[in-house]
């Protein structure tokens, strides 16, 4: 039924807010709230900033001799083919892109858990009753988390510099942020889809972890693909984490021996990574949006 407002009601007490909702304006409001929440929980913020740094420093030191085959290969052959496979003798340089993507992999669960918390506390209903664009609820939360994570990427890059990492292609560093952002959006979308399907904090957390850890360890995060067992090499080809890490890694270390042998270029590796991330992020965000739409109408 569509009825026009009775004339007697029109001028009674017009609401003070008459501006139309737009996704940009409404996303900015949700973004503002999410950012305020983050700043109000400094312990969580610091931990999420410091934890990747600790991993980076500890893993970088623990495996610092891995790239040179612990010196043995050089002794036997007078050359070091393992270094060529890593693309660098500096394990910290090899690992820095992996820790960036790993951080996005685990950090994106935040948006998902935030939306569940709002659903359970009833705050989501407050947002749903407001005259705002529905997608702004997703966009604002995702962008706030993305801001935090991109800030972490910048800090990680600076710490990498302090630990002796030198970037092979500093002019392409912008792509590090682009790749991290796309990967973060993909994981954020997937996380929100899971969260809105389970509508349960514990189930979401368990499910995301169930997939995240295998995703990380079947990728080229810790070792170059060429050094993985054959079956794992095959799996890593179908793992989006591999593409994100490889594309980020060529900016830091340049091409490795396998990539050179395959005739790849730095830009082709970056292009493939951006392309894969763009497709998957679009799919994940579409799935999350459709799920959200069925719930909030």
């Amino acid at each position: 039924m569509t009825t026009s407002a009775p004339a007697t009601l029109a001028p009674l007490s017009p609401p003070v807010g008459t501006g139309a909702g737009s996704i940009v304006r409404d996303s900015a409001t949700i973004y503002r709230r999410a950012t305020m929440r983050m700043l109000r929980a400094p312990v969580q913020l610091y931990v999420s900033l410091v934890q990747p740094l600790v991993w980076f420093v500890l893993f970088g030191q623990l495996f610092s001799r891995l790239t040179t085959g612990f010196g043995m290969a050089a002794v036997l052959t007078g050359q070091n083919p393992i270094v060529a496979q890593f693309g660098t003798a500096n394990y910290s340089a090899f690992f820095l892109p992996a820790i960036i993507i790993q951080m996005m992999l685990f950090g994106a669960a935040n948006s998902a858990l935030g939306i569940i918390t709002d659903d359970q506390s009833g705050y989501l209903n407050r947002l749903r009753v407001a005259p705002i664009n529905r997608l702004a609820i997703l966009a604002g939360n995702l962008l706030a988390d993305l801001t935090r994570m991109l800030l972490q990427v910048a800090i990680l890059l600076l710490v990498g510099l302090l630990f002796g990492v030198r970037f092979e292609y500093p002019g392409l560093l912008l792509f590090t942020f682009v790749l991290a952002a796309l990967f973060g959006l993909m994981m954020g979308g997937a996380g929100i889809f899971v969260a809105l399907t389970t509508r349960n904090t514990q189930a979401t957390f368990l499910l995301l972890n169930f997939f995240m850890v295998p995703l990380l360890f079947t990728s080229s995060a810790q070792l170059p693909a060429a050094l993985l067992p054959d079956w794992l090499q095959t799996v890593s080809h179908f793992n989006p984490v591999t593409y994100a890490i490889n594309a980020t890694r060529v900016i830091v270390t340049g091409l490795n021996a396998q990539q050179v042998a395959a005739g790849e270029s730095v830009m082709s590796v970056i292009g493939l990574g951006v392309g894969v991330m763009l497709v998957l992020a679009t799919l994940a965000l579409t799935a999350a949006t459709l799920r959200f739409h069925t719930l909030v109408r």
Binding site: P15, V16, G17, T18, D26, T29, R33, R126
Partner: peptide, 10 residues
């Protein structure tokens, strides 16, 4: 303040 923004108040 957030509520005001949700209702597009300046």
């Amino acid at each position: 303040s957030i509520q005001g923004s949700l209702y597009h108040l300046d």
